[in-house]
Design a protein around this nucleic acid. Sequence first.
RNA 1: GCGCCCGUAGCUCAGCCGGAUAGAGCACUCGCCUUCUAAGCGAGCGGUCGCAGGUUCGAAUCCUGCCGGGCGCGCCA
Length: 583
Amino acid sequence: MNIFNDLKDHLRNALEAMTAAGELPAGLSLERVTIEPPRDPSHGDAATNAAMVLCKPAGLKPRELAEKLKPRLDALEFVTETSVDGPGFINIRLADGVWRDQLAGILRLGTRFGDSTLGSGRKVNVEYVSANPTGPLTAGHARGAVVGDALANLLLKAGYEVCKEYYINDAGNQVATLARSTYLRYLEALGEGDANIPEGFYPGEYLKDVGQALAARDGDKWKGRDEAEWLEPIRNFAIDFLMGEIKEDLKLLGVEQAVFSSERKLVEAGKVDAVLETLTQAGHIYTGVLEPPKGKTPEDWEPRPQTLFRATDFGDDVDRPLQKSDGSWTYFANDIAYHLDKFERGYATMIDIWGADHGGYIKRMQAAVRAVTGGKGALDVKTCQLVHMFDNGKPVRMSKRAGTFVTLRDVLEAVGTDVVRFIMLTRRNDQTLEFDFAKVTEQSRDNPVFYVQYAYARAHSVLRHAREALTGRDLSDAGLAALDLSPLADPAELALVKRLAGWPRMVESAAEAHEPHRVAFYLQELAAEFHALWNKGRDDATLRFIIAEDEALTLARMALVRGAAIVVASGLEIMGVTPAEEM
RNA sequence: GCGCCCGUAGCUCAGCCGGAUAGAGCACUCGCCUUCUAAGCGAGCGGUCGCAGGUUCGAAUCCUGCCGGGCGCGCCA
């Protein structure tokens, strides 16, 4: 159910009829033709640019073409008025009944309203969080987690088959460092060693738990043994331990990913060797010497032959190294194998959510995906900027080196899941975000979380009152949907219905753009309009939702109130925020 | 030096696969507030969309070049 898609069908029919009548040349591309609500509602309910887009191939001036199209739109029975305006827009006004029918549809569908067939079941993989299992999730990780999760939900609503995935970076130096750091804490737990953590090890206190758990499981089994003996088992122990914690944190955040892919398993399964073999045979790999970066040559730079991927053949700026000098693969090489693995699992469309500090790797990864899938796979990477934590305006200092940071758990315990999830979507992903513990829990207009949730709660408060005022009346969604809604006639009421009717359009455009934050902004606008309508009842008693002496009107207005609540709930569902009937 | 992201009202930000007079909240100013239903409400003020060119019926939006800020730049992930 999407009225603008319906309108587009009618428009297309009209244009095809014009072609049939010889008024337009055959074979025109309607690609750029749009029909959408005009920015200024005084222009009408919908506007199309068809005349301006098609005038050139038709050999007509925009307004001439518009005048020919206009009567065909006038002929549609639900169109009450059209006009040709500006450079050649056709503005269209629809009968009020169209909008009331939309509202009835919303009540019948519930939060399924806005579901789209845009994706038509195509498979999309969204990979997010993917934090190294070397420590607990921080407040910063929360952003990528929420953006990825909401994006996945959004795509699901838009009709894609979505896989929510986490890539465990459990290979390489960082997890070796983790193992060594854990070993120190393990000795400490056994009452030995030095509690001072030397340079080059992870200093975080959280590793004490890991060391203790290891000591509890294995006793002094690893004490005094060679690193070669304990490195692997302790590494695996620590990774399992920390991944367990990460999953718990994610669960508290409302994130449940279906697939956890292990980098190590990929390597051990020979996937990296395989993909590099394929690339080599295709001639995409060679041994060469890279130029040092201009203007900023690293101190220890020396020209050195390396195994390189011809990323420049696929849109990158320089070719990229695949192998370390010890013979093991670089992270990039492993990541190529990983993305091919996703592709082979059926995900031609892949979306990765990364921190902004990884932005420099986007081009090479996209180049690799192109090379390795023969151009059939597409990778979109969304990068998330930093989250700056504040408490009532005072910055909360964090230092990963010093091991002092705000964990995700801390934030969740302080403000709750709903607040975290909502706030993380109140900025476009590429914009830095300020998270102020005091402000995000404030109950005021300034706090979008409160403002939107309150709209939902207020709607249900009204419904509770209506149930008392209208005892015995059917206020169920089905009952409301079956009503005669013609008492809804005030422009402000119809304007709200029109905004609700725009929800499916919002879902589709946000899904296409891979931009879940748009849902948060839409909900803020919707909430503002709902609250404003509520407030009108203060100045003008005839606009109150509940009019004791007019049951039919009150019932129709309950349909509107409930419709607004449904759309709010539908949006919150994508964001992973709970709608509360009482606050 | 190169690449990517950002630059929109005093502040924080939407809008950006081109569309009509550029939006919201805060702040500020002016009113209202013995409220059905709830943590106030309404109105106003406020912008050469970083700068300069270009593309076209039309540019905040696309292209080029500058300026300013952030991130990144061979064996970290």
